Amino acid sequence: LRTVEMKKGPTDSLGISIAGGVGSPLGDVPIFIAMMHPTGVAAQTQKLRVGDRIVTICGTSTEGMTHTQAVNLLKNASGSIEMQV
C-alpha cells in the first residue's frame, strides 16, 4: 500500500474516473482508478496510476462501498485528501 496526499480546492477537480464497488456493472469488485485526466489534481501528484485500487479515501475504507458512495466521497472532499492505494 502507498499513501498519496493531494490538495484540492473547492472548485478543483481530482481528474479521475473510478470503477467498481458493490453492485457495479463489473460485479462486486474493489474500487479502482479507471481513467485520469492529465491536468487533474491526481495526475499532478505523479503518484497515482490507472488501475490503482483505492483502499481508503480520507481514512474511510472503500470495502463494501457502492460506486455512488465512493464518487460522492471523492466529489465532496476538499482541502487535504489522503488516499491509500
Rank of each mutant, 00 (worst) to 15 (best):
G79V: 04
E82W: 11
L74D: 00
V71K: 13
L48G: 01
G64A: 07
R2Q: 13
S24D: 04
A19G: 15
G40C: 05
T62H: 00
K75H: 11
S61I: 01
V50H: 03
T11R: 14
H67S: 15
K8E: 06
A34E: 15
R53T: 13
G15S: 03
L48V: 08
N72F: 07
P30R: 02
K75Q: 13
S24G: 06
L74V: 06
S78H: 12
L73I: 13
G9L: 08
M83Y: 02
V41Y: 07
T3M: 07
M6W: 05
D28W: 07
M36K: 04
T3F: 11
G21A: 01
P38L: 01
G51Q: 03
S61A: 09
H67I: 10
M36H: 04
R2V: 14
V41R: 07
S78W: 07
I16R: 02
M6H: 04
E82F: 09
P30K: 00
Q69W: 03
G79H: 07
G23I: 00
F32R: 11
V71F: 13
G59H: 07
D28Q: 06
H37S: 14
G21Y: 05
V55W: 05
T66F: 06
V22E: 07
C58V: 03
H67F: 08
T11S: 13
S80L: 12
G9T: 09
Q44M: 12
A43G: 06
T3P: 02
S17P: 03
N72W: 08
P10Q: 08
D28T: 05
G20T: 03
A77L: 12
A43E: 05
Q44C: 09
V71N: 15
Q69V: 06
G79W: 01
P38K: 08
D28E: 07
G27V: 00
S24C: 06
L73A: 10
G59T: 00
G64I: 00
A34Q: 13
K75E: 15
M83P: 01
P30H: 01
D52V: 01
M83Q: 00
I33C: 05
M83G: 03
S78L: 06
R49N: 14
A70C: 13
I33A: 05
T60H: 15
M36T: 04
G51I: 00
K8I: 15
P10E: 12
V29K: 08
I31G: 04
Q46T: 12
R2W: 09
V22N: 05
V85I: 12
Q69Y: 07
I81K: 01
C58Q: 14
M35G: 15
T68M: 14
G51L: 04
L26A: 11
V85D: 02
G23M: 01
N72R: 11
H37I: 08
T66M: 04
M6K: 01
S17I: 14
A19Y: 01
D12L: 06
L74I: 13
R53W: 08
R53K: 12
G20L: 02
C58F: 07
A19H: 05
V50I: 12
N76A: 12
M65W: 05
L26V: 10
P38Y: 02
S13W: 11
I81M: 07
A34S: 15
G20Y: 03
G79A: 06
P30Y: 07
L14N: 00
A70Y: 06
E63V: 11
S17D: 15
I81T: 02
L74P: 00
S24E: 02
A77F: 08
Q84K: 11
H67K: 15
L73K: 10
T56I: 00
V41L: 14
M65H: 04
G79F: 08
